[in-house]
């Protein structure tokens, strides 16, 4: 390999302990050294959500190959932050999609409750694993986890937009 992986600063889970979580920041101990205000970022939020890169300001502290291998408390704290940073309602049912003045009005039921939002014509992206990403006119994303498992009506509406 041309680029040695060692240059990638891989963080072994055992070296990392998360002690605090605040909205989009965590306090983290790496090799016992406490670093405050660390921002976790996913390089592949859809294809490899388990990979997380930790940033302190602009500096890259290292890559967690799979954050789920952290100890339970660290993992829970990190997930709390990831939930904020990668907030994305999951669409469970599509109640209606209708065209309104060149836009589309979606009425959906998500894991965060019932929602209404507007999209442009081209708004659905099919992710490689088959999940659907719907983007509204404000560029907010909504995800459909298993489109084929939705009820018939929802699937009919979605197929209209893909």
């Amino acid at each position: 390999m041309l680029h040695k992986f060692s240059e990638l600063k891989i963080l072994e889970p055992s070296r990392v302990r998360v002690s605090e979580a605040r909205l989009d920041e965590i306090d983290v101990e790496i090799d016992g050294e406490l670093i405050r205000g660390v921002r976790p970022r996913r390089p592949f939020p859809f294809s490899y959500p388990e990979i997380v890169i930790l940033y302190k300001d602009k500096e890259e502290l290292g890559i967690l190959r799979d954050y789920r291998n952290l100890d339970t408390r660290s993992r829970e704290l990190l997930e709390k932050v990831l939930k904020v940073v990668y907030f994305m309602p999951k669409i469970r049912r599509v109640l209606n999609i209708r065209s309104v003045e060149g836009k589309y009005e979606w009425k959906v039921i998500t894991d965060k409750g019932e929602l209404t939002f507007f999209t442009w014509g081209r708004c659905v992206r099919v992710l490689r694993d088959g999940r659907l990403l719907v983007r509204d006119i404000y560029s907010r994303a909504y995800i459909v986890d298993e489109p084929e498992k939705l009820d018939n009506r929802s699937r009919l509406y979605l197929s209209m937009m893909i």
Binding site: F5, L8, P45
Partner: peptide, 23 residues
């Protein structure tokens, strides 16, 4: 995925990529 990141780092692409919300 690590290889992708490594190659991007070598090509000085990693930093701008990570600034994109979906990286």
């Amino acid at each position: 995925p690590e290889e992708i990141i490594a190659a991007a780092k070598a090509a000085k692409a990693h930093d701008f990529v990570m600034k994109l919300p979906e990286a």
